[in-house]
Write a protein that binds this DNA or RNA. Structure first.
Lengths: 359, 359
DNA sequence: CTGAAAGCGCTTACAG
DNA sequence: CTGAAAGCGCTTACAG
């Protein structure tokens, strides 16, 4: 393989000059530039990346990291990312966006605790200029370790205060969606449709969205002076079997809620299937509202009313934020924080009912 | 950031010894190993990747390259990979597989001719140890350029003879599916169902699968002494508008085929929609058979009878082949060639009919 | 405008 | 078993 030394010899200049041409430095007269460039073209010479990075040049590579430690079990699929409604499209979008901006993308998925160590290694080994992380707990301490490594990063769905308070001298961005607001809005939407007995099926509360959505529900119930019934707070934890257990429990109890807020579409879909089996009609007997707007939610009977998760926009914002971080000088630290709205997609799973109680 | 020099000093050994520990060389006594390793652990030292690669160590990174030059236009989607039924899952599967085998994955998508140059650069810059390529024409000369660079690679859906004849001193693998055989089988299946007037809607014939499937059709028609009617050879080129034009043309002509073989599901889906609009019933008036088995094909009315494209298996075979290439000594060149079967998925789009002509 | 020299952080014969 | 030295392929002050 041809090296800069060879190019220099053939072009009759020094390696320094070859380097100046490669890096497009201004202090090269046109004739010299052309002379060298012709040789480079002719021999199809590409500077060795490792050598360049070693002397401090940019890698032009961003890391895309997905942490998917508690997969939603689904025996049909061999893989998580492969058929995941959220991580899959997110990664694909990010690859598309970064490639079209001239960046290379190193993608890594962590399915087990040990895999997380590899993500940290990628930062430490300087394989990348910076990284985008998605899927960890809202206060996952892994981020703190990464922050210590000094490379800029963007984290999606993470507790901003925790990060701001625990990290200093780091450049990073946080991209969240307005899950709390969506939680409030979901609850108030049901109330406006006449519902008062509203159950909430929780996801894993260590997860940012799950935590915020539930917080929104609690606040909205409080604001409207609606009592919080312990039996109506369900714990599905994003798991199929727990979802089924919890739903069965509430169905068999003396009082049926008129509506259930499911913390995500996956659990909502399972809930709908189970209710159908139990001969409980949706939305006549129970209304369902949920979050994420996965593709399937459009095709259920009835269609699932849900809040849209703007996956593509999150990917876009993550990338532009990282790019901004990359261009800012390394000497000082910068933080950016964005929140993206989630909008209601009304389909058929919520029924307008008459008040059955006085207030 | 801490370097091997620092570790050496703290541990009271030379850099050579630190290097021996890092690389797990046998000639290090346990006490020395422990002494050094303790320091490494304590300071969380990670050797700089670029420096290691520069002296000839492996990158531990494979490239995953998708060439998607003629996207199937679909204005709903902002992206290609993002919602592509074939490349998206393929890339996701490959990331999953390579990550779980301890490899990093650099993913790059080429949408334009210029992007292809970047893929070649990635090889030339030695960002990767080897690469897997998918989506180019069956004789895309780009592969020849890559082969010249000397890194091992695996190419999916490519003309094996062209590659074998034009490349020497290179290590590579070719993974194909048995598209020719599927083309034959599709035709013979229709024949066994009583069809004689069989049209074929072509994709882009520069594409491996498109070429092979059509070749299979031609051969099967010949084997069964069925006449090839020019009006029944349609040219959709994987494009929506051409597909619609061609289908309209055949529908408006004097003679209707009793069955159409569509070169892929995307075109089959468009065909089915169009025929429905034209009040032509499937399968009563026209039977449809196709290739790929995209997720949607299960949900159409009637379900689409199609040959399954084993995406996950292709990804798996591609990776294991590349891995094999990587472990073989670089001095000699090796080639591997695999063909994966496509199996018929019978759904409702093909009708069994009575012979309407004598033979 | 240009070249010689030093240096980036590793590994690897080589010598002992 | 271990260290000193050379070298991987670049870039970057420095000097002219």
């Amino acid at each position: 393989m041809i090296r800069s030394k060879d190019i220099a010899k053939i072009a009759g200049v020094s390696r320094s000059t070859v380097s100046r041409v490669i890096n497009n430095y201004p202090n090269v007269p046109p004739e010299t530039y052309k002379k060298v460039m012709d040789v480079i073209k002719k021999y199809n010479y590409k500077p060795n990346l490792s050598a360049r990075v070693l002397v401090g040049k940019k890698n032009n590579t961003i890391g895309i990291f997905v942490v998917s430690l508690t997969p939603f079990q689904n025996s049909i699929f061999k893989l998580n990312l492969f058929q995941n409604n959220y991580f899959g499209p997110f990664v694909d979008a990010l690859i598309d966006i970064s490639n079209s901006s001239g960046f290379y993308s190193l993608v890594n998925i962590a399915y087990k605790k040990e895999d997380v160590e590899r993500i940290i290694e990628i930062f430490a080994e300087m394989r990348i200029d910076g990284g985008i992380l998605i899927g960890m707990d809202r206060k996952d301490p892994m981020i703190l370790e990464i922050a210590r490594l000094g490379l800029p990063f963007v984290v999606v769905h993470y507790d901003e205060n925790y990060l701001l308070n625990n990290v200093e001298n780091a450049s990073f961005g946080i991209i969240n969606t307005l899950d709390y607001e969506a939680g409030v809005e979901a609850t108030e939407y049901l109330i406006s449709m006449g519902h008062r007995n509203i159950a909430f099926l929780n996801g894993r509360l260590t997860n940012y969205s799950a935590f915020e959505r539930f917080r929104g529900y609690l606040q909205a119930m409080k604001n409207h002076n609606l009592p919080l019934k312990k039996e109506f707070i369900l714990h599905g934890k994003y798991l199929r079997h727990l979802t089924e257990i919890e739903i069965k429990k509430v169905v068999e109890s003396k009082e049926l809620p008129s509506a259930i807020i499911c913390c995500n579409d996956d659990m909502a879909l399972i809930t709908m299937n189970l209710l159908r089996e139990l001969k409980i009609r949706i939305p006549e007997d129970i209304s369902i509202i949920s979050f994420d707007n996965v593709p399937l939610s459009e095709y259920t009977q009835p269609g699932l009313t849900t809040f849209n998760m703007p996956i593509y926009e999150i990917a876009e914002k993550s990338f532009t934020t990282l790019q901004k971080l990359l261009t800012l000088k390394k000497s000082s630290s910068h933080t950016f924080f964005y929140e993206l709205p989630m909008t209601l997609v009304e389909r058929g799973s919520v029924l307008k009912i008459k008040y059955t109680e006085k207030f």
